[in-house]
Amino acid sequence: MEQEKKPKKQLAFNVMSSGKHKGFGAGSIDLNNVSPVIIDQGRAYIDMGAMHAKSKLERGIKFSANREDVPNGRKCWIVWVAVDRNEEGSFYGGLTACEMLVDEEARRGWKILADHVNRMDSAMKRRVLLEGLSEEEKGHLRELLMTHNEEWWANTSDEVKEALA
């Protein structure tokens, strides 16, 4: 009699929706407190599709890691925003910006996926990395964060606020 083989559990990157998981895959990353903000054409807005590279801006665009493939691309940003919580309440804890070029007419774009993943990780680790953003772009981001949740903004550290000044 042949013994039935049990399927082997695969070790994989898991996104957990609850911090209560203690079984196989415990210690996986929880992305519930991270949101992507798109800064493009003079405005900042939240687009959760960017979590899986499927924001409205990215859909239908073939991305390359070679910047020269997009000579007419306009500069856009994804800013990973991490929300944390302490005894005073929730606050904006980490902000990291990732540059992209998008040429909608040619349906081409440039971004470095590894940089986007690393920047998301940095935001989750409560780092503030906004180099490359212009004063105007920082202003759009600041305005969005302030109006999205005034209480979170009030609880946000001076370091984060100064980075957006």
Rank of each mutant, 00 (worst) to 15 (best):
R127I: 05
H140E: 15
G93C: 07
N86T: 10
R67Y: 10
K75A: 07
E88N: 12
R59G: 08
I78N: 11
N66W: 09
K22L: 13
L145T: 13
V117H: 08
D40S: 15
V15Y: 13
V70H: 01
G23V: 07
M146S: 12
E162V: 01
T147F: 02
E87T: 11
I29Y: 13
N33L: 09
V37W: 04
H21S: 08
D84R: 05
D40C: 01
A97Q: 08
G25V: 06
A44G: 02
S28H: 02
H52G: 05
H21G: 14
C98G: 05
K75N: 04
I39L: 15
E135K: 04
D84K: 03
L145S: 13
S17E: 11
S134A: 09
K54P: 05
G25N: 05
G139L: 03
V102N: 01
L113M: 15
F91K: 08
V79W: 07
H116D: 07
V117I: 01
L57P: 04
K161S: 03
A154I: 02
A82Y: 11
E104F: 06
G42I: 01
R142D: 15
K20A: 13
L145I: 11
G109E: 05
E151S: 00
E4D: 10
R43L: 00
A26R: 14
F13A: 14
K161M: 10
E162A: 09
I78P: 08
V128W: 05
A26Q: 09
A123P: 08
S157M: 02
H52F: 10
A154H: 06
D40R: 10
M120D: 09
S55V: 08
S55A: 14
V81D: 00
A26K: 15
R108G: 14
C98R: 13
I29R: 15
D30L: 08
E104D: 03
A97H: 05
E151L: 09
I29D: 02
